[in-house]
């Protein structure tokens, strides 16, 4: 079973990711699936064949306004990062949380770096699925290294919106 980072911990993951080209996909009973948008829409809105409502895989540059209904329905959304240099997904994640009020699990996958872990979680991603095991181990090491140390940031974020000086000027 593959492992992911969820809420800052390494956990087993029992969701199966179906890729774009699995056109003749038929769900097996008692499995949980993440489906690319097109496949997801084939089953929408009933999902009667599924034991659990499937998660939704979106590319990072998706226009969220076009998939409003899917966002409301999906228990889990996975954003695919095509490259670690392409930061579109950071805005996509933030928008899902801030504007679309998405409350389910938000997962980042694809070419993400352990060094981007903090930024991703601050943009609303509570789960990270790394492309290879080394990255996962590195991420795990980084989490352990700062155990107990609360990261300090200048600006607010999706989890804790605030302006930079809030809580500071009052102390002086």
């Amino acid at each position: 079973m593959q492992q992911i980072i969820k809420n800052g911990q390494v956990v087993n993951d029992d969701w199966y990711l179906i890729s774009d080209n699995e056109t003749d996909f038929i769900p097996l009973e008692c499995k949980k699936y993440i489906l690319p948008l097109a496949v997801w829409m084939e089953f929408y809105p009933h999902f009667t064949l599924f034991h659990e409502k499937p998660g939704l895989l979106l590319s990072s540059e998706i226009d969220l306004n076009q998939v409003r209904s899917a966002i409301t329905e999906a228990p889990l959304i996975v954003i695919f990062f095509a490259s670690f240099m392409d930061g579109t997904g950071f805005s996509t994640g933030s928008l899902l949380r801030e504007t679309f009020n998405f409350k389910g699990e938000l997962r980042a996958t694809g070419e993400i770096l352990p060094d981007q872990m903090d930024y991703l979680s601050r943009c609303g991603f509570d789960a990270l699925s790394f492309a290879d095991l080394n990255a996962l181990r590195q991420a795990e090491k980084m989490i352990q290294a700062r155990e107990g140390d609360k990261a300090k940031n200048y600006q607010g974020d999706v989890q804790m919106p605030r302006t930079p000086f809030q809580q500071r000027f009052s102390k002086v």
């Binding site: 930061g87 950071f90 981007q116 601050r122 943009c123 940031n153 200048y154 600006q155 974020d157």
Partner: peptide, 12 residues
Amino acid sequence: QWSSLHPEFAFL
């Protein structure tokens, strides 16, 4: 301060 290590805008 706002723009330093901003989580959303580090990979523009």
